[in-house]
Design a protein around this nucleic acid. Structure first.
Lengths: 153, 153
DNA sequence: TTATATTAGGATAAAAGAGTCCAAATAATC
DNA sequence: GATTATTTGGACTCTTTTATCCTAATATAA
């Protein structure tokens, strides 16, 4: 499992938000319904993203959450780092603490290359990019639905 | 976390075995001491590898485990599949069941590329290759020790 | 045949991840 | 001011992973 479940949910929710009108607050309840994610669990995850400054929240009626920056400025990596931390980018493939160029394990070089590929992919992909691709090709963000669920009310 | 802890331990242990004389049975107790892994836990993991035909075991005095094939014929992928299963290679990055070319998520294409890189790395790396590199450069397989711990008695 | 060194396998415990629930704070509307 | 819709935050439960322990089976050797 590359990403934790929390992280995956966070990514899906962020994509959902990026598909919405910029600046609009979306209630978490609505997101959890559309994305088929437990409301309470999703709430906890989005609280993390809010705490990290990736989302902005607003309480009360007409409240909800929204992206704190345009979706073009949010990389997948931002979400991953906010939720799973930098473990994925720093950890030794053989689990040895302090594995690095100075004191590597036998797998270090190869793993570093592979890891860089993962890193590059996450760093060079923005939320908006995926939303546009999803819209153009009607791809899905839930088990059943098409991408259009994002654009219903 | 790309690989489970069990899988990482399995890899380290397999590398240890690959560094030993071919055909020699090594007691798990010795491995757990050298590699600083809980004996009971390591035992469970190696049982899996034995059940999957990657290792061979022998009970009683002078017993232990050994590779069932030459280390040149064991890819890292073999160990990973035996312990973590094929989840890493099949799972959708956004956690959607059945995500594939026929019914992809917006991240599918990019993730498929990245995943192929991971797959290629694991498939093209053999135990022997890493052992030789480790020996040549005195790399480590434990928190503290150098690679030489593998070659002490 | 008895003692010893090992793996096999089941039961259990501890820790981490995933998921649920409830009360409190806040903001809008009636 | 009261009601309602929302996020916040803490407590709790469930499940999976990680780790430990104990007994049985097996093989060697004295």
């Amino acid at each position: 499992m590359l990403l934790s479940k929390s992280c995956v949910y966070g990514l899906r929710a962020s994509l959902y938000l990026a598909s919405k009108k910029e600046g609009e607050f979306i209630p978490i309840k609505r997101m959890s319904d559309k994305l088929e994610i437990s409301f309470h669990f999703l709430t906890k995850i989005l609280q993390q993203l809010t705490a990290q400054g990736i989302l902005e929240s607003f309480k009360g009626p007409n409240g909800g959450v929204r992206l704190n920056r345009p979706g073009t400025d949010v990389q997948l990596m931002d979400i991953v780092l906010a939720i799973d931390g930098e473990q994925l980018l720093t950890e030794c493939a053989l689990g040895l603490p302090g594995c690095g160029i100075k004191n590597p394990c036998p797998l270090h070089d190869k793993w570093a290359e592979t890891r860089d590929a993962i890193k590059a992919m996450l760093e060079h992909t923005t939320l908006t990019e995926l939303v546009e691709k999803g819209r153009a090709e009607n791809l899905r963000l839930t088990t059943d639905g098409g991408f259009d669920i994002l654009f219903e009310d």
